[in-house]
Design a protein around this nucleic acid. Structure first.
Lengths: 149, 149
DNA sequence: GTACTTGCAAATTATTTGCACACAC
DNA sequence: GTGTGTGCAAATAATTTGCAAGTAC
């Protein structure tokens, strides 16, 4: 990852009529230098060392902005999720409608090949995977089309 | 999904020296009957109709138990995650060490085939996928081995 | 009878909002 | 100068914990 992301950030912000500010620089620097995923609180703590005046609220707002601009992505952990569904069989994954929340299950995720190859490359002992797909279900697609015209 | 999960629940609980109680029955019934993923708050609201004395705390504890026993699974949504990482390129996925939090990125997730086939079967218009792998990184494996003996 | 469970209240943690002031452009 | 961004304080939301009382076995 880039060690000085500021110039790129400046350009991206300008395109969107947003301003380059110290908090934004600092937050992006912290995330860029991390070899590690960080929670908002961790980012805040570290960023505050570079810019003590920083507020936690700003970190949250900045993270949203950076995700929106595509400089940062959210990581999904095994914890920190808020919905539950009945177990079908095997390890079920879900295809969730992003509009109405309806969910279909599937279990043939066919990740074995990927998992094997990553284990070989990285040396990790992979034991959990999270795979969830999202999109509009047929009904919501119909409704969405109806609304548009 | 089973419409009356109670007998199976009873057996599973007995195996683990846990007791079959009304709250546990009710919570599992609600989840089993849902064609939908549910948040703890939603489960609470619905379960309370069947058993008004129920407390929200119990719902949380029951969900943990049901997950542990394998009767229920957590669904991971695009929201509700708490960590951030720099964007590498394309849409990055992560392989996160469950012990130290270190993360490797990868983007060749090779889900196209799966996505296509699911779109065909279900009619969903899939536009987002969450894929995260977890396991012990090489360092943590070494340390874990050291600790055991 | 005993160990496991529960519900409540309170504590904790995470995140969001309103608003006056400050700053980048 | 103007509109965007900031920090603070307070509000809201989500989850966890301590504990006395209740209940399944």
């Amino acid at each position: 990852m880039l060690s000085t992301p500021t110039p790129i950030l400046r350009a991206g912000l300008r395109e969107n009529r947003r301003k380059l500010t110290r908090p934004r620089q600092v937050v992006l620097e912290i995330i860029s230098q991390a070899n590690h995923h960080l929670t908002p609180a961790e980012i805040y703590r570290q960023a505050k060392m570079k810019y003590p005046h920083l507020g936690l609220t700003t970190v949250y707002r900045t993270l949203d902005l950076l995700v929106e601009l595509g400089y940062v992505q959210r990581i999904h952990l095994a914890e920190g999720c808020h919905s539950y569904a009945p177990i079908a069989q095997s390890h079920g994954h879900h295809l969730v409608c992003s509009n109405c929340g309806r969910a279909e299950e599937f279990s043939d995720c066919d990740l074995e090949g990927l998992v094997q190859s990553l284990q070989g490359k990285t040396g990790y002992a992979i034991d959990v995977h999270v795979l969830e797909l999202m999109g509009l279900c047929p009904d919501c697609q119909t409704k969405a089309r109806g609304r548009k015209r």
